[in-house]
């Protein structure tokens, strides 16, 4: 993959430094801006597949680390503010971590996106959905894999079990990111990792970045597990609807297959993460429970924002004129 298209002065400087040049990266004033989000996504990507045109040592560049620290502090503060009310409510609603996670999920925001894809979306709208989600699904579970080395005992065993399933259960052809690539290819889309990064919107970048924020710092391991819990617990219903939508608009079986697999797999993962991972992790380290709830609430709120934004974009009556500032 090549470095993404800068979307403003921050990402321009970040790309320049990642490439091996010198620049002082500007401070962030709006952490939700697409400029800040693509910049943060770029810095995080150095720890995943990286970029063919990055300097080999960019991952340890002090200017990038300094800027990431600053951006992450802003993002974390924003997320703690955003989730406080939901977390307080969940804490009052139940006494166990599983009960609190369930309370969060039950009270979580919903959006019309999955229903729209199921019942009314055009083929083009379904394809737009597949493109937008490719940023995550082509590296599916990779953020959560960072956490495996930071937990121990029964929580590690259960997380390992979940990840083994995400990673194909010993069969490369069942690797979930590979199933997604096959879905894209079957639809005539580009399945190359990162192919669509230059066209996805800020809310999608944010939903990816919060996973990396929680995954990259050991301190936030609880948030990463909580995020995973909410993610898995809100997956089967939309996946079932999207599979129906894909079949309704006549896209190939390989595209629906990814979603059928996730109805079945995530029905399992939801139980494993709620009952076997999170409970055990908190039993071993009670201090991480607050962050677990932070992570779960973040997933619910931020992913709903991304879904709503995507729904708004694909159902907008008149397509925005190209060249209007981008």
């Amino acid at each position: 993959m090549h470095l993404p298209r800068p979307r403003g002065p921050i990402s321009e400087a970040v790309v320049e430094v990642v490439r091996g040049g010198r620049a002082e990266i500007p401070s962030v004033t709006d952490i939700r801006s697409e400029d800040a989000q693509i910049a943060l996504w770029t810095v995080y990507e150095l720890a995943y597949r990286g970029f063919g045109d990055a300097s080999p040592d960019a991952e340890r560049d002090l200017e990038l680390l300094r800027w990431r620290h600053h951006a992450e502090d802003l993002l974390e503060a924003e997320l703690r503010d955003l989730t406080r009310a939901a977390v307080d409510e969940a804490r009052a609603a139940a006494a166990t971590v599983e009960g609190r996670l369930r309370a969060l999920v039950d009270a979580g925001p919903s959006t019309p996106l999955a229903r729209h894809l199921q019942r009314r979306a055009t083929r083009e709208q379904v394809l737009a959905y597949l493109v937008e989600r490719s940023v995550y699904h082509l590296k599916e579970s990779d953020p959560q894999a960072f956490v495996l080395g930071r937990v121990d005992g029964p929580a590690k065993v259960a997380l390992g079990e979940l990840l083994y399933d995400e990673y194909g259960g010993g069969r490369p052809e069942r690797l979930h990111s590979h199933l997604y690539a096959e879905a894209l290819e079957a639809c005539g889309l580009d399945a190359t990792y990162g192919a669509y990064i230059d066209q996805v919107e800020a809310p999608t970048l944010l939903s990816n970045n919060v996973m990396s924020l929680f995954a990259m710092q050991r301190r936030l391991r609880g948030a990463s597990l909580g995020h995973l819990a909410a993610f898995e617990a809100t997956s089967t219903d939309p996946c079932r609807r999207i599979a129906v939508g894909i079949e309704r608009v006549g896209l190939p079986d390989a595209a629906a297959a990814y979603f059928h697999e996730h109805v079945e797999a995530d029905a399992v993962h939801e139980q494993v993460v709620m009952g076997d991972i999170c409970g055990a992790a908190v039993a071993a380290e009670p201090a991480i429970e607050d962050d677990l709830l932070l992570g779960a609430a973040t997933c619910l709120i931020i992913d709903a924002e991304a879904s709503q934004a995507l729904y708004d974009a694909i159902t907008a009556p008149a397509p925005e004129l190209a060249g209007a500032g981008r």
């Binding site: 997956s235 089967t236 219903d237 079932r240 109805v263 079945e264 995530d266 029905a267 399992v268 139980q271």
Partner: peptide, 9 residues
């Protein structure tokens, strides 16, 4: 479930 015998949520 619509995928018996497996749970589908």
């Amino acid at each position: 479930t619509a995928r018996a015998p497996w749970c589908d949520g």
